[in-house]
């Protein structure tokens, strides 16, 4: 049964994604949310329509070189254009937990993730992406993360299980955004491990995060 998400990225984030100004790393979290959220897909389609209307607007035209049309016509029946390298899609197994585009970034479904234990109760797996740090997190059922604040933006998308913090209860497809103003202590639901995709900006956070994990963590 599909859960329809209740927590969504803010309009600024969807706009940056639709306009193409959002870096790859946060875009991966937004695009994975879109796979699970019909509401935001419709929102992004509307924002793309706005981009199309702005582009079609007659007031913004710059003359092009006289030879450009001939150059284009000469290429029409040439070989298909090379695209920037994309990740090869991974054929889905039965009932995949991870949707595209995340599955291709991982190279398979949840069972292929190579987890690394960070602190008791928490496993992580870094993904390679430009524009910030993205990682998968698996929080043991019923565990609480250490209380923490943020040095920048943090976007978390639940893929399995759920967690609760001061701002609400998050289930599959739900998108949590936190920034420097938020101080929270997420606690995984006690009916199974919680698997999330998380983005953090500011590379300096890597040491910061490591230091934070050294804080005594509290069992829920």
């Amino acid at each position: 049964m599909n859960h329809i998400p209740h927590h969504h990225p803010g309009p600024d984030l969807l706009l940056a994604y639709a306009a193409g100004t959002l870096a790859e790393a946060p875009s991966l979290v937004v695009a994975t949310h879109l796979a699970l959220c019909p509401r935001c897909r419709a929102e992004v389609a509307g924002m793309e329509a706005i981009g199309g209307a702005l582009l079609s607007d007659s007031s913004a035209a710059t003359p092009v070189s006289t030879g450009l049309l001939a150059d284009v016509l000469a290429r029409l029946d040439g070989p298909p254009l090379a695209e920037a390298p994309r990740r090869r899609q991974v054929p889905p197994g039965h009932n995949p937990v991870l949707p595209e585009p995340l599955r291709s970034y991982i190279g398979g479904d949840v069972d292929t993730i190579r987890w690394r234990r960070t602190i008791p109760g928490l496993h992580e797996c870094e993904l390679s992406c430009s524009g910030g740090a993205v990682r998968m997190m698996r929080i043991r059922s019923g565990m609480g993360m250490p209380q923490h604040t943020h040095h920048g933006d943090e976007f978390t998308l639940v893929l399995q299980g759920g967690f609760t913090d001061g701002s609400g209860h998050y289930l599959r497809g739900d998108f949590a955004s936190t920034d420097t103003s938020v101080d929270h202590r997420p606690i995984a639901d006690d009916d199974g491990d919680c698997i999330c995709l998380a983005f953090t900006d500011a590379p300096l956070r890597l040491t910061g995060r490591f230091m934070r994990w050294l804080n005594p963590f509290i069992r829920a």
Binding site: E24, A31, T32, A35, L36, P96, R103
Partner: peptide, 12 residues
């Protein structure tokens, strides 16, 4: 950069 996008035909 790559631009990650969802796949409308994805079973998930």
């Amino acid at each position: 950069d790559r631009r990650p996008t969802f796949d409308p035909n994805d079973p998930a």
